[in-house]
Amino acid sequence: MNQISNLFPKSWRNLHFIVLVFFSILLLFGGKNITEPASRLIISSFYYPFFKIKNFMVEMSAVAAENDLLREQLVSASTRIAELEEEARGTERLRSLLGVDPPAGYSLVPAKVISVTYDGALPVSAVINRGARDTVAVDQPVVNQSGLIGRITDVLGNFSVVQLLTDPANRVAARIAETREMGIVKYKTNEGLILDNFPVQGKIHEGDLIVSSGLGGVYVAGLTVGTVLEIIRPDDAQFCKIILDPAANFGSLEELFILRPVNK
């Protein structure tokens, strides 16, 4: 081919131009019979791979946009689920509160915990949203659906301070629900809730229910304080050490009830 072109360079060039013009005329005046097959051939060989790539890019872009939207919806749905779960927990708690019956001669004043004061791991006092305007008075016992919580120690117009069982300064005259033997419940920072002043020869077993005895005039008799967790009987001591499992969970105080005497 090159030899021919070298022999007749001028003619070879002209021949090329003639062929080129011929093809151009063919494309110009050949009509659809010529141009459309050529167009199809070019599109399928040159354009098709890029159409595929562009289509993929468009799809990926749409997928990315959809992904963003779904992620946004997921966050929104997760937040809503968390809200609903919290509401469900609140409903469950309130439902359990419906079963709380006051002791005879007392009515229940519902209250919400506004704040708590800690001294170590557990709170020692709580501020509730009921006060003198709700006829709340000092030394009224405070309970929740699980059992005894503490007593009112300070009263303001709309607020009161509750001294919790977990305050080491608090004492509750208590007895074993089954055997009626008595002791004093108090909280020690290192040991937790304990039943003190209980003689070593007294009848007590692990799992026994401890209730308030009503002695002392502050706490009504029969309020659940806790259950016996562990009994330690030292050989050379008069009293045994009884560790209690508190009935109420002092780490999650929310809705409480003040026991108000009916005649007041």
Partner: peptide
């Protein structure tokens, strides 16, 4: 140039001849 014109106007076959030329 001729082929580039054809490729350029593949989507518009009516103008293929002009573009190629």
């Amino acid at each position: 140039g001729f082929l580039a014109g054809m490729v350029l106007s593949a989507g518009n076959p009516g103008g293929m001849g002009w573009q190629a030329l």
